[in-house]
Design a protein around this nucleic acid. Sequence first.
DNA 1: CGGGATCCGTCTTGATACTG
DNA 2: CAGTATCAAGACGGATCCCG
Lengths: 116, 116
Amino acid sequence: MNQPRRSPCPVSCTLDLIGDRWTLLVIRDMMFFGKQRFEEFLESPEGISTNILANRLRLLEEAGLVKKQPYSNHSRRMNYQLTEKGESLRPVLKVITLWGLKHLPDTQTPDRPQSS
Amino acid sequence: MNQPRRSPCPVSCTLDLIGDRWTLLVIRDMMFFGKQRFEEFLESPEGISTNILANRLRLLEEAGLVKKQPYSNHSRRMNYQLTEKGESLRPVLKVITLWGLKHLPDTQTPDRPQSS
DNA sequence: CGGGATCCGTCTTGATACTG
DNA sequence: CAGTATCAAGACGGATCCCG
């Protein structure tokens, strides 16, 4: 998605991974709503399209934030789960959530927040 | 830049404001490096181009995160400063910085960090 | 000289249709 | 169900121009 920035800035490099319109929403769906399957991500109200979702899941896997596994031996169902590194983004999601709730009217806490 | 999402999710709505490749870098430059002028933002190593920078500054102003003022009465120099609302993003920048420093090799703390 | 606006070629994104 | 192919629309990078 994002080219490397030729800069050692931690903000810049982190944004190479999650600084786009969709990536953090996929992570939100995994982290707060426990979503794990392709179709579940498609159901979110923001309406990500299939090619973008496939692309972001692949980039997240390449970045080591998500691991992809077959649901079972005899199924093509795939399972996407956060790795430990992916889970480590929870404070980032949390502070973004809190900022939005405080400063943006018309936002509200998600229906099934599983945040710690 | 980002269309509204028709979703009350605070993550989603916050990303409408800062969920792109450049916006948080401009805010970083203001917040950590004290930059205030157009030309100073252009000097950052990521190399934002003039049209993109002008666009992001305008969007930030419209969002109430930045205020633009003439440097003095008899100069066209402009001054971009974070509003209180913009300053309130400091915890977001901070947690992103910390995540990058911890999880991304080859990142290092900025030269003149003014973060609290 | 500082702060943009405009134009243009390229790259990325995204909606939709389609496939195994 | 989980993607891939296609193709149009938009975002971006860079140069140039403009205006006070």
